[in-house]
């Protein structure tokens, strides 16, 4: 084998080679592929610029009061539905790991039903609840017409929030399970009750695992609220539609709506990054492989 190894002929040779200038690899393939992709992007932008969209109209409606009202309603629905979803998610997750067989089964059935049926279908069900229960209330105390209560807002919040709870409960459960059992024991040995252990020791650590997926779910909730346009909740998409039914500028108004969804999602992503940093305290902040 030794004759296949090519060593410098002398120490002097070796020394000369060791001090030659280093030339980095040129990555020709990377440059070519980048150029091709940039060209395609440029063509796409050009297509939109010369296409049948009147950008002036887009600009005109970008800050229209109806659109701004829609943004507010979208944000409001995102916050309300997501809060309900997270609350239900925590409750269902705790039920699933409670050790109480009845609560565990009920939690599983909840997840099975509300994760199983399409979100749009659930919205329609809540909105049309009056067809099943014309009135609601406690017999002898009070009674109201379901139609009066089930406004588009309430129906959308219940529909979106309850189905979200089914997904979020799985995120919460995996977060709770990610905390080492030694943490429960350490909390117990300093005399904490189960609730204190959960609140002071386990949940703060579980948050670190839960924030990225919950952030994802908030972002998908922003977009899911557009489904509420179907039951006449006046969020961004619904209001954009109201305008284009009147002026037939369909594409322009869809552009306006997409612009605002992108803005909201961008802002939320920035907030998520900050929250992640907060819950990563005490860990050697590893964010990459």
């Amino acid at each position: 084998m030794s004759d296949t190894i090519i060593l410098p002929k002398s120490d002097r040779d070796a020394h000369d080679i060791a001090h030659l200038q280093l030339v980095p690899r040129r990555h020709l393939g990377r440059k070519i592929s980048a150029a091709i992709v940039l060209l395609l992007v440029a063509l796409l932008i050009r297509a939109f610029v010369i296409g049948e969209i009147e950008w002036g109209v887009v600009g005109q409606f970008l800050f229209a009061p109806v659109i701004l009202k829609g943004i507010w309603n979208t944000l409001l629905m995102t916050v309300c539905a997501m809060s309900l979803g997270i609350f239900l998610g925590v409750v269902i997750a705790i039920m699933r790991i409670s050790g109480n067989p009845v609560l565990e089964k009920i939690a599983l059935v909840y997840i099975w039903i509300f994760r199983g049926a399409p979100a749009l279908l659930q919205l329609l069900l809540w909105f049309n609840l009056a067809l099943i229960f014309p009135t609601m209330g406690i017999p002898g105390l009070f009674q109201v017409d379901t139609v009066d209560i089930m406004t588009p807002f309430v129906a959308a919040m219940l529909g979106l929030g309850i189905q979200q709870g089914a997904y979020t409960s799985e995120v919460v459960r995996s977060g709770l399970l990610s905390v080492d059992s030694g943490q429960y024991e350490a909390a117990q040995t300093i005399g904490m009750t189960s609730m204190q252990t959960l609140r002071r020791v386990v949940l703060p650590q579980a948050m670190r695992v839960m924030v990225p997926p919950v952030g994802n779910e908030v972002i998908s909730m922003v977009k899911l609220t557009s489904l509420a346009s179907v039951i006449q909740y006046s969020e961004i998409l619904h209001n954009a539609q109201v305008i284009y039914y009147a002026n037939t500028r369909v594409l322009e108004l869809l552009m306006v709506a997409s612009f605002w969804y992108l803005v909201i999602v961008t802002v939320l992503s920035l907030i998520q990054a900050r929250i992640e940093r907060y819950y990563a305290r005490g860990t050697r902040g590893r964010t990459t492989l």
Binding site: G182, Q183, E185, A186, Q188, G191, M192, T193, Q196, V201
Partner: peptide, 21 residues
């Protein structure tokens, strides 16, 4: 929980709360 207060415990794997100083 009340009974455990008077009994301290030190674990093999420390089990300090990692999110607290």
């Amino acid at each position: 929980a009340r009974q455990r207060r008077g009994i301290g415990m030190v674990f093999q794997r420390f089990n300090l709360f990692p999110h607290k100083t």
